[in-house]
């Protein structure tokens, strides 16, 4: 079987990018300089923000190659876009050679620079890594990722062994989100935490009403 698309980063990377507590500390990785564009010092930047152009809405960004480095402040100005990247001019950089020297620079902002959200809205960065407890007691795991596949937001929760489950991010399924305490309480719908190893024919102990899943109302049998 063909291998799936090369993964750009792991969810653990995403958590590491959020180096601080949920209430305003730490930094968030917004993008990476992937190269130079043209001869006038423009940069090609891969933006990780929800909308690629939102990268330019947070003022000067902190550019740093690796954790722990002091870094430098960059004031970016959007000049265009290309495939998978946004193009930007940087104050003080006017030639390609200097721009190429910035390749690999990671662009951060302080978590506190993000605007406040409405009720029941949360930044992914705040949710990642939260401990998940069950309503009835017991620990379910930690939030590994937040997804939206088209049916609403859902949390991917990893247990100690690394196995993951999906829990819908709804008031009913997640009644408590306590960011200062670093925890949330889940009340997942019945059956969602079961293992998925059973097959279509084994459901609910071989219920008589369960036909083989291949039996369907296929057309008119003229195939």
């Amino acid at each position: 079987m063909a291998s799936p698309r090369k993964r750009q980063s792991s969810p653990a990377d995403a958590v590491r990018d959020t180096t601080g507590d949920a209430e305003g500390g730490g930094e968030l990785l917004l993008g990476i300089v992937v190269g130079a564009q043209g001869i006038r010092g423009q940069l090609r930047i891969r933006s990780f923000t929800g909308e690629p152009d939102a990268l330019f809405g947070y003022g000067p960004l902190l550019g740093r190659r690796r954790d722990g480095e002091e870094g430098r402040r960059l004031t970016l100005r959007r000049t265009g876009q290309a495939k998978d990247v946004v193009l930007a001019a940087v104050d003080g950089i006017a030639d390609r050679t200097t721009a190429e020297g910035l390749k690999g620079l990671r662009l951060y902002i302080e978590r506190s620079a993000l605007p406040a959200l409405e009720e029941d809205e949360y930044y992914h960065a705040d949710l990642l890594g939260l401990a998940v407890e069950l309503v009835g007691g017991g620990r379910l795991g930690t939030v590994k990722a937040v997804h939206d596949f088209g049916a609403g937001d859902m949390l991917e929760i990893a247990d100690a062994a690394g196995r993951t489950k999906f829990v819908p991010f709804t008031r009913k399924a997640v009644p408590v989100v306590d960011l200062p305490a670093g925890r949330l309480v889940a009340d997942p719908p019945e059956g969602i935490l079961d293992d998925g190893r059973q097959g279509p024919g084994d459901q609910e102990g071989g219920d008589e009403d369960e036909p083989d899943y291949r039996v369907s109302d296929t057309r008119d049998g003229t195939e």
Partner: peptide
Amino acid sequence: HAADKKAKR
């Protein structure tokens, strides 16, 4: 990456 992405409960 998480960046500035939001989730709504």
